[in-house]
Protein backbone atom coordinates (compact mmCIF):
# COMPACT_ATOMS: atom_id res chain seq x y z
CA UNK A 1 0.00 0.00 0.00
CA UNK A 2 1.16 3.51 -0.71
CA UNK A 3 1.08 6.09 1.99
CA UNK A 4 -1.74 8.55 1.63
CA UNK A 5 -2.91 11.83 2.99
CA UNK A 6 -6.14 11.88 4.95
CA UNK A 7 -8.46 14.81 4.44
CA UNK A 8 -11.47 15.33 6.66
CA UNK A 9 -13.86 17.85 5.12
CA UNK A 10 -16.53 19.45 7.27
CA UNK A 11 -19.09 19.90 4.51
CA UNK A 12 -20.29 18.39 1.27
CA UNK A 13 -18.93 21.40 -0.58
CA UNK A 14 -15.46 20.88 0.87
CA UNK A 15 -15.60 17.21 0.10
CA UNK A 16 -16.59 17.80 -3.50
CA UNK A 17 -13.83 20.36 -3.84
CA UNK A 18 -11.30 17.91 -2.45
CA UNK A 19 -11.94 15.39 -5.19
CA UNK A 20 -12.86 17.71 -8.05
CA UNK A 21 -9.26 18.04 -9.16
CA UNK A 22 -8.80 14.30 -9.55
CA UNK A 23 -8.34 13.28 -13.19
CA UNK A 24 -10.93 10.53 -12.72
CA UNK A 25 -13.48 9.27 -10.23
CA UNK A 26 -13.16 5.77 -11.62
CA UNK A 27 -10.57 3.00 -11.33
CA UNK A 28 -7.23 4.24 -10.09
CA UNK A 29 -8.45 7.65 -8.96
CA UNK A 30 -5.67 9.40 -7.02
CA UNK A 31 -8.25 11.00 -4.73
CA UNK A 32 -10.94 8.84 -3.21
CA UNK A 33 -13.84 9.37 -0.86
CA UNK A 34 -13.84 6.90 1.98
CA UNK A 35 -16.78 6.03 4.22
CA UNK A 36 -17.10 2.50 5.68
CA UNK A 37 -13.95 1.46 3.88
CA UNK A 38 -14.95 -2.20 3.68
CA UNK A 39 -14.24 -2.21 -0.04
CA UNK A 40 -11.63 0.49 -0.45
CA UNK A 41 -9.32 -0.53 2.41
CA UNK A 42 -9.41 -4.10 1.10
CA UNK A 43 -8.38 -2.93 -2.37
CA UNK A 44 -5.75 -0.55 -1.06
CA UNK A 45 -4.09 -3.42 0.79
CA UNK A 46 -3.95 -5.25 -2.53
CA UNK A 47 -2.61 -2.19 -4.38
CA UNK A 48 -5.63 -2.44 -6.66
CA UNK A 49 -6.55 1.06 -5.57
CA UNK A 50 -3.64 3.40 -4.87
CA UNK A 51 -5.09 6.78 -3.87
CA UNK A 52 -2.68 9.43 -2.67
CA UNK A 53 -5.44 11.26 -0.87
CA UNK A 54 -8.37 9.87 1.05
CA UNK A 55 -11.31 12.14 1.73
CA UNK A 56 -12.98 10.90 4.90
CA UNK A 57 -16.67 11.74 4.48
CA UNK A 58 -17.86 10.07 7.68
CA UNK A 59 -18.52 13.38 9.43
CA UNK A 60 -20.86 14.78 6.82
CA UNK A 61 -24.04 13.42 8.37
CA UNK A 62 -25.98 12.11 5.36
CA UNK A 63 -26.94 9.04 7.35
CA UNK A 64 -30.68 9.37 7.79
CA UNK A 65 -33.52 7.30 6.43
CA UNK A 66 -36.61 9.46 5.97
CA UNK A 67 -40.08 9.18 4.53
CA UNK A 68 -40.76 11.35 1.50
CA UNK A 69 -44.06 12.95 0.68
CA UNK A 70 -45.93 10.66 -1.66
CA UNK A 71 -44.81 7.43 -0.04
CA UNK A 72 -41.19 7.28 -1.12
CA UNK A 73 -38.11 7.08 1.04
CA UNK A 74 -34.83 8.97 1.12
CA UNK A 75 -31.72 7.13 2.29
CA UNK A 76 -28.59 9.07 3.17
CA UNK A 77 -25.43 7.93 1.43
CA UNK A 78 -23.76 7.36 4.77
CA UNK A 79 -26.60 5.33 6.26
CA UNK A 80 -25.00 2.04 7.26
CA UNK A 81 -26.27 -1.13 5.66
CA UNK A 82 -27.42 -2.46 9.03
CA UNK A 83 -29.46 0.66 9.75
CA UNK A 84 -31.11 0.68 6.36
CA UNK A 85 -31.97 -3.01 6.47
CA UNK A 86 -33.46 -2.72 9.93
CA UNK A 87 -35.25 0.57 9.44
CA UNK A 88 -38.99 0.27 9.95
CA UNK A 89 -39.73 2.29 6.82
CA UNK A 90 -37.61 0.03 4.68
CA UNK A 91 -38.90 -3.18 6.22
CA UNK A 92 -42.48 -1.99 5.77
CA UNK A 93 -42.25 -0.50 2.27
CA UNK A 94 -39.37 -2.27 0.58
CA UNK A 95 -38.78 -5.70 2.11
CA UNK A 96 -36.75 -6.56 -1.00
CA UNK A 97 -34.15 -3.98 -0.04
CA UNK A 98 -33.95 -5.10 3.57
CA UNK A 99 -33.67 -8.74 2.53
CA UNK A 100 -31.06 -7.98 -0.11
CA UNK A 101 -28.84 -6.09 2.30
CA UNK A 102 -29.18 -8.73 5.00
CA UNK A 103 -28.26 -11.47 2.54
CA UNK A 104 -24.95 -9.80 1.82
CA UNK A 105 -21.69 -9.98 3.79
CA UNK A 106 -21.88 -10.22 7.58
CA UNK A 107 -23.16 -8.17 10.49
CA UNK A 108 -19.66 -6.78 11.05
CA UNK A 109 -19.34 -5.61 7.45
CA UNK A 110 -22.89 -4.30 7.27
CA UNK A 111 -22.25 -2.24 10.40
CA UNK A 112 -19.51 -0.40 8.51
CA UNK A 113 -20.64 -0.43 4.91
CA UNK A 114 -22.71 2.48 3.67
CA UNK A 115 -25.45 2.89 1.11
CA UNK A 116 -23.28 5.09 -1.09
CA UNK A 117 -20.24 2.88 -0.77
CA UNK A 118 -22.23 -0.19 -1.65
CA UNK A 119 -23.46 1.54 -4.82
CA UNK A 120 -19.80 1.62 -5.87
CA UNK A 121 -18.91 -1.90 -4.72
CA UNK A 122 -16.23 -3.42 -6.92
CA UNK A 123 -16.21 -6.78 -8.57
CA UNK A 124 -14.87 -9.93 -6.88
CA UNK A 125 -13.08 -11.15 -10.01
CA UNK A 126 -9.87 -12.78 -8.72
CA UNK A 127 -7.79 -11.32 -11.55
CA UNK A 128 -8.96 -7.81 -10.81
CA UNK A 129 -7.94 -8.31 -7.18
CA UNK A 130 -4.36 -9.38 -7.90
CA UNK A 131 -1.93 -6.94 -9.49
CA UNK A 132 0.28 -9.81 -10.69
CA UNK A 133 -2.30 -10.41 -13.41
CA UNK A 134 -3.44 -8.53 -16.44
CA UNK A 135 -6.88 -6.96 -16.11
CA UNK A 136 -8.58 -4.51 -18.41
CA UNK A 137 -10.60 -3.05 -15.57
CA UNK A 138 -7.59 -2.38 -13.36
CA UNK A 139 -5.03 -1.79 -16.06
CA UNK A 140 -6.79 -0.84 -19.30
CA UNK A 141 -5.52 -2.63 -22.35
CA UNK A 142 -3.61 -5.30 -20.45
CA UNK A 143 -6.02 -8.10 -21.29
CA UNK A 144 -8.57 -10.30 -19.55
CA UNK A 145 -7.26 -13.62 -18.20
CA UNK A 146 -10.69 -14.43 -16.77
CA UNK A 147 -12.19 -15.17 -20.16
CA UNK A 148 -10.00 -18.27 -20.50
CA UNK A 149 -9.44 -18.68 -16.77
CA UNK A 150 -11.24 -18.87 -13.48
CA UNK A 151 -14.66 -17.45 -14.31
CA UNK A 152 -17.16 -19.59 -12.40
CA UNK A 153 -18.33 -16.58 -10.38
CA UNK A 154 -18.37 -14.14 -13.29
CA UNK A 155 -21.02 -12.66 -15.51
CA UNK A 156 -23.14 -14.08 -18.30
CA UNK A 157 -25.00 -10.87 -19.10
CA UNK A 158 -23.62 -7.53 -20.21
CA UNK A 159 -20.13 -8.88 -20.83
CA UNK A 160 -17.71 -7.72 -23.48
CA UNK A 161 -14.60 -9.16 -25.00
CA UNK A 162 -12.70 -6.93 -22.58
CA UNK A 163 -14.37 -7.76 -19.30
CA UNK A 164 -16.72 -10.32 -17.80
CA UNK A 165 -16.52 -9.18 -14.17
CA UNK A 166 -19.69 -9.46 -12.11
CA UNK A 167 -21.20 -6.66 -10.10
CA UNK A 168 -21.29 -8.37 -6.70
CA UNK A 169 -23.80 -6.20 -4.83
CA UNK A 170 -27.09 -7.37 -3.39
CA UNK A 171 -28.32 -3.95 -2.35
CA UNK A 172 -28.00 -2.57 -5.87
CA UNK A 173 -30.10 -5.35 -7.35
CA UNK A 174 -32.92 -4.39 -5.02
CA UNK A 175 -32.43 -0.68 -5.73
CA UNK A 176 -32.58 -1.47 -9.44
CA UNK A 177 -35.87 -3.31 -9.05
CA UNK A 178 -37.14 -0.38 -6.98
CA UNK A 179 -36.11 2.16 -9.63
CA UNK A 180 -34.12 4.15 -7.13
CA UNK A 181 -32.52 7.47 -8.00
CA UNK A 182 -28.94 8.25 -7.03
CA UNK A 183 -28.44 11.86 -5.93
CA UNK A 184 -25.06 13.36 -6.48
CA UNK A 185 -23.48 16.68 -5.64
CA UNK A 186 -20.65 17.51 -7.98
CA UNK A 187 -18.45 20.34 -9.04
CA UNK A 188 -21.28 21.70 -11.18
CA UNK A 189 -24.05 21.25 -8.62
CA UNK A 190 -26.59 18.57 -7.82
CA UNK A 191 -27.78 15.80 -10.14
CA UNK A 192 -30.35 13.05 -9.85
CA UNK A 193 -29.37 9.93 -11.74
CA UNK A 194 -31.84 7.11 -12.24
CA UNK A 195 -30.14 3.89 -11.19
CA UNK A 196 -30.73 2.48 -14.65
CA UNK A 197 -28.39 5.17 -15.95
CA UNK A 198 -25.94 5.05 -13.09
CA UNK A 199 -23.99 1.97 -14.14
CA UNK A 200 -22.08 1.61 -17.38
CA UNK A 201 -21.58 -1.65 -19.24
CA UNK A 202 -17.90 -2.59 -19.53
CA UNK A 203 -17.71 -2.47 -23.34
CA UNK A 204 -14.23 -1.36 -24.34
CA UNK A 205 -13.72 0.68 -21.15
CA UNK A 206 -14.30 -1.64 -18.19
CA UNK A 207 -12.32 0.69 -15.93
CA UNK A 208 -15.32 2.99 -16.10
CA UNK A 209 -18.14 1.52 -14.02
CA UNK A 210 -20.48 4.43 -13.34
CA UNK A 211 -21.28 7.85 -14.73
CA UNK A 212 -19.62 9.56 -11.77
CA UNK A 213 -17.20 12.36 -12.61
CA UNK A 214 -14.41 13.81 -10.44
CA UNK A 215 -15.90 15.58 -7.44
CA UNK A 216 -19.20 13.73 -7.63
CA UNK A 217 -20.28 12.81 -4.12
CA UNK A 218 -23.29 10.56 -3.66
CA UNK A 219 -25.39 12.28 -1.02
CA UNK A 220 -28.50 10.13 -0.94
CA UNK A 221 -30.73 7.70 -2.72
CA UNK A 222 -34.46 8.07 -3.16
CA UNK A 223 -36.93 5.30 -3.79
CA UNK A 224 -40.37 6.04 -5.18
CA UNK A 225 -43.53 4.62 -3.68
CA UNK A 226 -44.71 1.27 -4.92
CA UNK A 227 -48.29 0.59 -6.00
CA UNK A 228 -50.63 -0.35 -3.20
CA UNK A 229 -50.49 -4.03 -2.47
CA UNK A 230 -47.22 -4.57 -4.27
CA UNK A 231 -45.06 -7.30 -2.76
CA UNK A 232 -41.34 -7.62 -3.01
CA UNK A 233 -38.83 -10.33 -2.34
CA UNK A 234 -35.10 -11.00 -2.69
CA UNK A 235 -33.77 -14.49 -3.29
CA UNK A 236 -30.06 -15.25 -3.31
CA UNK A 237 -28.45 -18.52 -4.38
CA UNK A 238 -24.86 -19.38 -3.47
CA UNK A 239 -22.60 -22.27 -2.53
CA UNK A 240 -22.44 -21.81 1.19
CA UNK A 241 -25.32 -20.80 3.39
CA UNK A 242 -24.04 -17.34 4.32
CA UNK A 243 -21.16 -14.89 3.89
CA UNK A 244 -20.76 -15.40 0.18
CA UNK A 245 -21.45 -13.52 -2.99
CA UNK A 246 -24.36 -14.58 -5.16
CA UNK A 247 -24.09 -17.08 -7.94
CA UNK A 248 -27.48 -15.78 -8.90
CA UNK A 249 -30.02 -13.60 -7.17
CA UNK A 250 -33.33 -12.03 -7.99
CA UNK A 251 -35.12 -8.93 -6.73
CA UNK A 252 -38.80 -9.04 -7.53
CA UNK A 253 -41.57 -6.52 -7.07
CA UNK A 254 -45.03 -7.63 -8.11
CA UNK A 255 -48.63 -6.80 -7.74
CA UNK A 256 -51.34 -9.32 -8.54
CA UNK A 257 -54.84 -8.07 -9.22
CA UNK A 258 -57.64 -10.51 -9.93
CA UNK A 259 -55.19 -13.34 -10.42
CA UNK A 260 -53.28 -11.41 -13.06
CA UNK A 261 -49.93 -9.74 -12.69
CA UNK A 262 -50.56 -6.01 -12.84
CA UNK A 263 -47.12 -4.79 -11.86
CA UNK A 264 -43.75 -6.46 -12.24
CA UNK A 265 -40.12 -5.54 -11.70
CA UNK A 266 -37.41 -8.09 -12.17
CA UNK A 267 -33.74 -7.50 -11.42
CA UNK A 268 -30.92 -10.00 -11.12
CA UNK A 269 -27.61 -10.16 -9.31
CA UNK A 270 -24.59 -12.41 -9.66
CA UNK A 271 -25.06 -12.80 -13.38
CA UNK A 272 -24.50 -9.35 -14.85
CA UNK A 273 -21.64 -6.94 -15.21
CA UNK A 274 -24.03 -4.42 -13.69
CA UNK A 275 -27.13 -4.91 -11.51
CA UNK A 276 -29.37 -6.42 -14.18
CA UNK A 277 -32.87 -5.16 -14.83
CA UNK A 278 -34.95 -7.34 -17.11
CA UNK A 279 -37.68 -5.41 -18.90
CA UNK A 280 -38.13 -8.51 -21.06
CA UNK A 281 -39.16 -10.56 -18.06
CA UNK A 282 -41.45 -7.82 -16.84
CA UNK A 283 -43.10 -7.59 -20.22
CA UNK A 284 -43.59 -11.34 -20.24
CA UNK A 285 -45.34 -11.18 -16.88
CA UNK A 286 -47.67 -8.23 -17.24
CA UNK A 287 -51.26 -9.25 -17.62
CA UNK A 288 -50.46 -12.91 -17.21
CA UNK A 289 -51.80 -15.29 -14.62
CA UNK A 290 -49.52 -15.88 -11.64
CA UNK A 291 -48.56 -19.41 -12.58
CA UNK A 292 -45.26 -21.26 -12.44
CA UNK A 293 -45.29 -21.68 -16.20
CA UNK A 294 -45.60 -17.96 -16.75
CA UNK A 295 -42.87 -17.27 -14.23
CA UNK A 296 -40.59 -19.70 -16.00
CA UNK A 297 -41.36 -18.03 -19.32
CA UNK A 298 -40.41 -14.68 -17.80
CA UNK A 299 -37.19 -16.18 -16.48
CA UNK A 300 -36.39 -17.52 -19.94
CA UNK A 301 -36.90 -14.02 -21.28
CA UNK A 302 -34.67 -12.57 -18.56
CA UNK A 303 -31.76 -14.78 -19.56
CA UNK A 304 -32.32 -14.41 -23.29
CA UNK A 305 -28.99 -13.55 -24.83
CA UNK A 306 -26.97 -14.74 -21.86
CA UNK A 307 -23.42 -15.63 -22.82
CA UNK A 308 -21.96 -18.39 -20.67
CA UNK A 309 -18.25 -18.41 -19.97
CA UNK A 310 -16.10 -21.54 -19.86
CA UNK A 311 -16.96 -22.38 -16.24
CA UNK A 312 -20.26 -20.71 -15.51
CA UNK A 313 -22.76 -22.04 -18.01
CA UNK A 314 -24.81 -23.38 -15.10
CA UNK A 315 -25.56 -19.83 -14.05
CA UNK A 316 -27.98 -19.39 -16.91
CA UNK A 317 -30.26 -22.15 -15.68
CA UNK A 318 -29.60 -21.25 -12.04
CA UNK A 319 -30.68 -17.66 -12.63
CA UNK A 320 -33.83 -18.89 -14.37
CA UNK A 321 -34.73 -21.02 -11.39
CA UNK A 322 -33.91 -18.14 -9.11
CA UNK A 323 -36.23 -15.74 -10.93
CA UNK A 324 -38.97 -18.35 -11.22
CA UNK A 325 -38.85 -19.21 -7.57
CA UNK A 326 -38.59 -15.60 -6.43
CA UNK A 327 -41.70 -14.81 -8.46
CA UNK A 328 -43.44 -17.76 -6.82
CA UNK A 329 -42.50 -16.45 -3.40
CA UNK A 330 -43.51 -12.88 -4.22
CA UNK A 331 -46.91 -13.87 -5.50
CA UNK A 332 -47.52 -16.40 -2.78
CA UNK A 333 -47.35 -13.57 -0.29
CA UNK A 334 -49.87 -11.61 -2.25
Amino acid sequence: MHTFELITPASVTEAVKAQAGSPTAQQGAPVRFIAGGTNLVDFMKLNVETPRQLVDINRLGLDRVEALPGGGVKIGALARNTDVAQHELIKARYPVLSEAILSGATVQLRNLATTGGNLLQKTRCVYYRDTAFACNKRNPGSGCPAIEGHNRMLAVLGTSEHCIATNPSDQNVALTALEATVHVTGAKGERAIPIAEFYVLPGATPERETVLAPGDLITHVTIPALPDGAKSVYLKLRDRASYEFALASAAIVTQVSGGRISFARVAMGGVGTVPWRSHEAEKALLGKAATRENFRAAAEAALHGAKPQTQNGFKVELAKRCVTHALTLATKQA
Partner: peptide
Protein backbone atom coordinates in the same frame (compact mmCIF):
# COMPACT_ATOMS: atom_id res chain seq x y z
CA UNK B 1 -16.77 -3.04 18.91
CA UNK B 2 -16.71 0.42 17.38
CA UNK B 3 -19.03 2.70 19.28
CA UNK B 4 -20.82 -0.37 20.54
CA UNK B 5 -21.18 -2.13 17.21
CA UNK B 6 -19.17 -5.07 16.02
CA UNK B 7 -16.88 -4.44 13.04
CA UNK B 8 -13.79 -5.93 11.38
CA UNK B 9 -10.83 -3.99 12.75
CA UNK B 10 -8.64 -5.06 9.82
CA UNK B 11 -10.67 -2.74 7.57
CA UNK B 12 -10.30 0.39 9.69
CA UNK B 13 -7.49 2.86 9.25
CA UNK B 14 -6.39 3.93 12.73
CA UNK B 15 -6.15 7.54 11.62
CA UNK B 16 -9.87 7.58 10.80
Amino acid sequence: HLNGRRVNSCLLFATM
